[in-house]
Write a protein that binds this DNA or RNA. Structure first.
Lengths: 212, 212
DNA sequence: AAAGTATCCATATATAAATATGGGTAGAAT
DNA sequence: ATTCTACCCATATTTATATATGGATACTTT
């Protein structure tokens, strides 16, 4: 593996950071200004980065950089569709969940290439799904849909309140089931499915201890 | 909320997709070519997108676009540092875990602004942590470190094999503990901590129906 | 000693790309 | 009827940006 010099590494890092900050890559001149050297010199460095396989660029295209390997030598995965989905907060009964002012944060999420679905995230409260390994404080990622199969974990509206439960359905009827022996199934109340849980996330270590 | 026309929406979506595909935003001409209309017209559309608060751009800068609200009207979070971390596969005893050819995939991950730590992901095999809500097939995200506190869930090397366990330590000694009553603690074997589990992920909906 | 590589400079030129200007039509809103 | 907005055209001009060229020094490798 072709390894980078310090200068090359710093330039590659700058391109990455600039792109992240501005949403578009730098020009040769931007880089030259940053490092207080001339464009001609930057040309040399860029050429080296290309030769060593860290950077690609399109001829004659402004800001036409594409990083293909990071400074630690790890290939950048390509064609991965990642984005942010909103994390909605709890809502009092009757209020709309999907309101812009009910967004408590965002969660990074890798979209399944195919689906053109809409996703969102919710924080789980309570212990009712503990036997399915879903704990209080966990975050679930949900695909919006109004139908689901027997056994799916779903977000349902019960009395205008969003809740996480397991969907049960047979030929006769559908109902919601908790995963905790202390709770009983919800058999005879109307509910509406608003999405299916497709992923679970649990963060440890929220207040980061200084490592000794 | 200012809502977009169909054309404006399609153009905003194109800018987003082009940027994702190429790693740099399109020029006005790129957009004009795509929609088979002239640059002058694109100027109008871009101006409308700016006026309605979906798009920002820097004057006189090539490809100087920055999307600030997506087509569904959701604000784009800014300054979030997300990237991909490698998902390593299982290794036979004695083989190095962190080899480039042992990368089985990538996982999107939001970096904690501060930390300059190195992270990676591993798939959990076995039921030994089931009482901590960590199941076979789950993915753990790990921060590389060689120290950890009592109660932390860690990745440890035991006989050159990586395993997920809970770290126990008192004044006298440190040992590894499973979270499953069928397993007993590992008291008298040497081990080495290689990282601390900071996040858990579980994907549902992967073809196979989840157990019960 | 010669060749290569990494670092740097200055400057000219070609091309990419944004901007400016002035015009047009159709339909909705006032 | 008039104004506004969304949509479209053509073309000239300015500015941003990449590229080309030819040089230099210090250092390591051959």
């Amino acid at each position: 593996m072709d390894t980078l010099t310090k200068k090359q590494k710093r330039i590659l890092e700058f391109i990455e950071k600039y792109t992240k900050d501005n949403s578009y890559p730098p020009t040769l001149k931007d880089i030259a200004l940053k490092f207080q050297i001339t464009i001609g010199t930057i040309q040399d460095h860029i050429f080296a980065l290309q030769r060593k396989g860290y950077l690609e660029r399109k001829k004659d295209k402004a800001r036409g950089f594409k990083i293909i390997k990071t400074t630690d030598g790890i290939d950048k995965p390509h064609g991965v569709d990642m984005g942010m989905i909103p994390l909605y907060g709890k809502v009092a009964a009757g209020e709309p969940i999907f309101a812009n002012d009910n967004i408590n944060g965002y969660v990074v999420f890798e979209k399944n290439a195919r689906g053109h679905n809409i996703h969102f995230a919710l924080e789980v409260t309570g212990e009712s799904m503990i036997d399915s390994g879903i704990y209080d404080g966990d975050i679930v990622i949900v695909r919006k849909q109004e139908q689901a199969d027997d056994g799916d974990i779903v977000i349902a509206l019960l009395d205008d309140e969003a809740t996480v439960k397991k969907l049960r359905r047979n030929n006769i009827k559908a109902y919601l089931e908790a995963s905790n022996s202390k709770y009983k199934a919800i058999m005879n109340r109307p509910f509406k499915i608003i999405g299916k849980v497709i992923e679970l996330r649990r963060k440890y270590d929220l207040l980061q201890k200084q490592m000794l």
